[in-house]
Amino acid sequence: MMTLEQLLRQHFPAAVFEDSDDLRVGSLPDWNSLAHFNFLLLVEETYGVRFSVDEMSDLKSIAEIRARLSAAGIAA
């Protein structure tokens, strides 16, 4: 399965970064709220999870998304 970082690179193909751990909405030039919404839908589809309305607004960083996936037993 793709890692969260690979998914992020696929979603923002033009972005240049070394490590995704500290990245969050706004860290990359194209990572605006619309792109973030699409990214969360992609995460849901890829890992077979479903976020609540609250999570859709709270999950703003790679670390937060990774923690949420980890709580569901998914290493990403």
């Binding site: 619309l34 919404f37 992609l42 589809e45 609540s52 309305v53 859709m56």
Partner: peptide, 15 residues
Amino acid sequence: RNYYSARCRMSQRGL
């Protein structure tokens, strides 16, 4: 869910 979190009426499949 998407409507209330992002005012987008469609699901991923709809998009």
